[in-house]
């Protein structure tokens, strides 16, 4: 009898483990597809610009996989940490499972309003804990233009109490992930908010 229970436990354990490792595996796998579609979009953008000689063309949105509900809209590059990540459109859970996402309606680059990117602290945005003040982040938008930002503030905000207030008229880059980084549950109240101002 005990032996049977033990076997069942073992099996359940293996299933749970497999399921748990599926999440980061999915995150890692999708990165490749997203990267590919981003490169493709960039290439297409270059060709288009070369042809039309005009900068105000509509950005190309290529879905990383045919049934995707989102598309890459920007790429972040952290030079000091040697990390880069492609940002998807939208901040809903489905999108965030695949990569960092730009939270609607702060998903417009090239405007006067902030650009807000959220990501999981235990997959894509795990490296945010290594970011320090004055770090330089470069953001490439869908038009292929690059803008440099410098980290000016790092805040820890209680997300259960209120929404995050952002100055409407500053074109900041805001990165959001869960805090503390060492925590293990998926239901954290605190958020780690990095604010970077354009250089």
């Amino acid at each position: 009898m005990l032996r049977l229970i033990a076997i069942v436990l073992m099996l359940v354990g293996i299933i749970v483990c497999a399921q748990a490792s599926w999440l980061p595996a999915k995150a890692w796998l999708s990165q490749h597809l997203i990267n590919a579609s981003w490169q493709q979009a960039m290439k297409g953008q270059q060709l288009k610009q070369a042809k039309q000689q005009s900068k105000s063309s509509k950005p190309i949105a290529i879905k990383p996989w045919p049934w995707a509900d989102t598309f890459p809209i920007a790429a972040l590059d952290f030079q000091r940490l040697d990390k880069n990540i492609v940002v998807l459109n939208g901040g809903d859970p489905t999108t965030l499972a695949f990569s960092a996402g730009a939270v609607v309606p702060f998903n417009q680059t090239d405007t006067n309003s902030p650009f807000v990117v959220a990501g999981h602290r235990d997959s894509h945005f795990a490296f945010l804990q290594d970011i320090i003040l004055k770090d330089v982040i470069s953001l490439t938008n869908a038009h292929g233009r690059t803008q440099l930002y410098q980290v000016e503030r790092i805040d820890i905000v209680d997300a259960s109490a209120a929404q995050l207030a952002l100055p409407a008229d500053e074109a900041n880059l805001v990165l959001i992930t869960c805090y503390p980084f060492e925590g293990i549950s998926d239901n954290e109240d605190e958020r780690y908010v990095i604010t970077a101002t354009p250089l």
């Binding site: 033990a6 436990l9 354990g13 749970v16 859970p93 702060f106 100055p167 869960c178």
Partner: peptide, 28 residues
């Protein structure tokens, strides 16, 4: 003029799940 951003859930919580799984395997 402040804009409000709702902060999405930003943790997968796979560490927790993995640990539970490992514990179960260890119990066997």
């Amino acid at each position: 003029e402040n804009l409000m951003v709702a902060m999405p859930k930003t943790a997968l919580g796979w560490h927790q799940q993995l640990l539970i799984g490992l514990l179960l395997i260890m119990l066997a």
